[in-house]
Amino acid sequence: MTEKIVDALGEACPVPLIKAQNAIKELAVGDILILQIDHSCAMKNVPEWARKEGHNVEIEEVDDGEWEIIIEKV
């Protein structure tokens, strides 16, 4: 199991989502993608996309207005 961290801090929509989509393609099933974001819209559209794709998603608020979206590829 590998863990990949993608930094999308300071990026506005839709960049975080595209980065997540590109990153998840390169991962194997069971791998984990950690997307770091500080854009409140990405906090909504990235998990929405990931859940629709069937991945497991967790959101952690790491600081004021900063989140880590943890996606386990299924």
């Binding site: 801090l9 300071g10 990026e11 500080d38 854009h39 409140s40 608020e61 600081d63 004021d64 207005g65 900063e66």
Partner: peptide, 14 residues
């Protein structure tokens, strides 16, 4: 809205 959610952060140009 962002302050009441305690989510305000200055986002500098990257």
């Amino acid at each position: 809205a962002t302050l009441l959610a305690s989510q305000f952060k200055i986002k500098k140009i990257k």
